[in-house]
Amino acid sequence: MSLRSAVQRVMAIAMVGACAVVLTGCGESSQVIRYQQGKYQGKTDSKPWDNEPSPFSASGLTKGDRIAWETQIKTRNQNQNEYQRAE
């Protein structure tokens, strides 16, 4: 192999490599950031009915009694309806 053909081969390989590198710029990768909902990173919260009643708590509540808590909330919800209280 002559020196000239060796140089031509190297140059051809270099050209192919350069073309490959340049063509990567023509890719169709998305330019828009896709939003992904993050996950809460903080401390876990307890359920409102899952605590010892305080002196300020409504009467009839006990720890872990969800039904009693919901009943209390429902009663207080309806206390906002003065039509029901009056009729």
Binding site: P53, F56, S57, Q72, R76, N77
Partner: peptide, 26 residues
């Protein structure tokens, strides 16, 4: 809420303009 009560603003509203609680109920 953990005391079995609704928000103070809604429960204190004198004209009951502000309602707070279970969405279906209010």
């Amino acid at each position: 809420l953990s005391e079995g009560k609704l928000p103070a603003c809604a429960e204190m509203c004198s004209t009951k303009a502000l309602l707070g609680g279970d969405g279906d109920v209010i």
